[in-house]
Design a protein around this nucleic acid. Structure first.
Lengths: 196, 196
DNA sequence: ACCTGAACACCGTTCAAGT
DNA sequence: ACCTGAACACCGTTCAAGT
C-alpha cells in the first residue's frame, strides 16, 4: 500500500513536470522558458528534470505529444462536420498552443529527435489531408498535391497572426480553389449582419 | 589622404564583419553561430561587434537586408519571364540563404525589431504577389486572397526540404489552382522523357 | 530509484580602460 | 572614434553524493 502510493506519486511527479512544462512552453515558447523555471514551477531542483528527460528537447517532445493527442481527439470528435469546419477547428486548436509549432521548426536543426518527430507529424497530417480531400471530391491523382498546398496554407495561418474572419476567408478561398467550388454555405457574414 | 584611407578601412571593417556574419548565419543558422565565432572570423574581439551593432538580432537584420536586396535584384532581372519561372527563382534564391527565414520567424518573439522587419517584408512580398497575379489574369478582388495562399505555399516549400522536381510540381499545381489554367507549357517531364 | 548542491562550459552583453 | 580584456548574469547539462 505504501509502495503503491509511492509508485503513484512518482508517476504524478513526472506528470506534474510535464503539465507545468506544457503550460510554460505554450505561454512563453521554447527559448523563453528555462529548465530552471520549469523545475521551480514543478517544485524540484533544476537538474531533477534530467532524471526524467534526456534534455530540454525531450521535454519539448513530451509536451508536443500531449498537445497533438489532444488536438487529434478534438478534431476526431467532429467526424461528421464539413471539411471547412474541421480545418478551422484544427487551426484554432493548434494555435492555442502558442508558438509551439514554430518552436518545432526552429529546433529541427538542433535535435535529430525533434526532426524525426516533425517528419512523422508532417507525414501523418499529409495522409489525413489526402483522405479528407478525396472524401470531399478531389480526385486521388491531384489530392496529394492539393494536400500539400492545403497544409502549407494552414501552416502559414498558424505562423502569422490573423483576424478570425480573415482566417476563415483564406481557408474558404483555398478550399474553393482546391475543391473547385464551395460545397457548403459559409457563415462568413460579419456579426453586424446577423438577422433578427 | 591618410585620413581618407583610414575612413575607408573603417567602413571595410564593418563590411567584413557583415560578410563574415552572412556566411556563418547562412551556413549554420542563428542559434548555432555565436557572436564570439563571428568576431573571431572577422579578426576582432568578441565585444567589438557591439560597437557596430546593438545586439545579435541587429547583426541578423543587417545580414537579412543584404540577402533580400540580392534576391530582389535577381528576381527583378527576370522581369520578362513567366510567373512560374520567377516564383521558382525566388524560392531557389531564398533557399540558398539556408535557415535564415526560419530564423526570422523564431526571433520574431524575442525582438520587436525583427518583428517589424518581418512584417514589412511580408507586406512587400504580398503586394508584389498581388500585382503579379493580376498581371497573370487573376481578377483583383480575388488576387489578395490568392496572393496569401501563394505566399504560404512558397513559405512552406522553403521551410521543408523538397526534391527540385517535387517543388516544381507543387508550384505548378498551386498556380494552376489559382490562375485556373496553366498559361505556359511546363517542363515538368521527367529527365528520362526528354525527347531525341 | 529518485533527488540534490555544486560545478562546468558556453553564451550574449556590459563596462571601464586603452589608443 | 574605435577596440579590447575582464567581468556579469544566465543557460543547459553533468557529476558525485545523498536517501
Amino acid at each position: 500500500m505504501a509502495r503503491n502510493k509511492r509508485h503513484l506519486e512518482q508517476k504524478v511527479k513526472k506528470e506534474e513536470i510535464e503539465l507545468v512544462a506544457m503550460a510554460l512552453l505554450k505561454e512563453k515558447g521554447y527559448d523563453n522558458t528555462s529548465m530552471a523555471e520549469i523545475a521551480r514551477s514543478a517544485g524540484v531542483a533544476a537538474n531533477t528534470i534530467y532524471w526524467y528527460y534526456e534534455n530540454k528537447d525531450d521535454v519539448l517532445l513530451a509536451v508536443l505529444n500531449r498537445v497533438v493527442s489532444q488536438a487529434i481527439a478534438d478534431v476526431m470528435a467532429l467526424q461528421e462536420q464539413p471539411l471547412r469546419t474541421r480545418v478551422l477547428m484544427l487551426i484554432a486548436q493548434v494555435e492555442s498552443s502558442g508558438s509551439l509549432m514554430t518552436d518545432v521548426h526552429s529546433r529541427v536543426s538542433h535535435s535529430p529527435k525533434v526532426r524525426a518527430w516533425h517528419d512523422r507529424f508532417h507525414t501523418m497530417v499529409e495522409q489525413l489531408s489526402v483522405s479528407e480531400l478525396v472524401k470531399a471530391g478531389v480526385n486521388l491523382a491531384e489530392a496529394l498535391l492539393d494536400a500539400r498546398v492545403l497544409i502549407y496554407v494552414i501552416e502559414g495561418l498558424l505562423a502569422h497572426p490573423h483576424e478570425l474572419q480573415e482566417r476563415e476567408q483564406i481557408v474558404d478561398h483555398a478550399l474553393k480553389r482546391i475543391t473547385g467550388q464551395l460545397k457548403i454555405p459559409s457563415q462568413v457574414k460579419t456579426p453586424s449582419q446577423a438577422k433578427t
